[in-house]
Amino acid sequence: MRTSGKSALLAYPLLAAFAIVFLFPLIWMVARSFMGLDDLYKVPPIVFPTKWMANSYSEIWSLKPFPTYIRNTGIVVLCSVIGATLSSALCAFGFARLRFPYRNLIFGIVLSTMMLPGAVTMIPVYVLFSKLHWTNTLLPLIVPTFFGGGAFNIFLLRQFFATLPPDFDEAAKIDGANLWNIFWRISLPLCLPGLTVVAIGTFMSTWNDFMGPLIYLSKEQSFTLALGLYALSPGEAGGSTIGTITTAQLMAACSLAIVPVILVFFFAQKKLISGTAISTGIKG
């Protein structure tokens, strides 16, 4: 599909039209966070404020304990990224570079867990964690990530490890390196692009996770940012009553919650996209 000049002329207006459709909700969200009360409740609604006011961004801090939410989210994200990256790399190395009985069967079982709906395991896992008195702590969100870090990530990294030439292992073995050194000193650094994809993917999914916190956390001091936002939103269970929070404040909180993911996405989009290509078995 090489492009001629004619199709470029056709493509740009279409691309621009789609771009407006896809960007508009986000632009409106940010614009509304800067609106005063009279701008917010104008009928018909306006896109940009007549007067830009940033006071919502300072007001939200007194509405809910946002620093606590951010701290909790930070802890969960940091631990999950470490846990998922490290443990998926370990497992992927085992599946890609070592021979052991039933290896392919075990790997097949690992992959098949991707198709298992969360609804089936959700209740017993909740029972397990509540017996351990881990509800209302961040542990249920962190500890499972250290056990393999997700089938998808293992699959992705296995592809990376499998492409490393075996000569490296052999040469290292002759030099007297043990397996751990081969993994830690040689293979892992070579798989840095793959590890980055796993780390960024885990960051995004953990930052955005809603169901986990919703199930395990019911006390405000343990809330993550996603759950805190949910609690802030009027009309939700345990949420603010309408009138205690303005739309501008709500939109300001949403905008702030989106900033980190968007920053990470901009920084890493090339890697993420190529990672998706590899994981679907298609060369990018």
């Binding site: 443990s87 998926s88 370990l90 497992c91 190395f93 085992g94 599946f95 070592l98 021979r99 052991f100 009985p101 290896r103 075990i106 079982i109 690992v110 867990t113 298992l116 089936v120 395991t121 209740i123 017993p124 896992v125 029972v127 397990l128 499972p144 250290f146 056990f147 393999g148 870090g149 089938a151 293992i154 397996l179 993994f183």
Partner: peptide, 26 residues
Amino acid sequence: AIAGYLFTSPVTIGILLFTAWPVLQS
């Protein structure tokens, strides 16, 4: 083989704890 089982143990233990056993229990 022993090394292989050790390296992959996080996910096998994880699946037993957080998938296989919960599936049966549910």
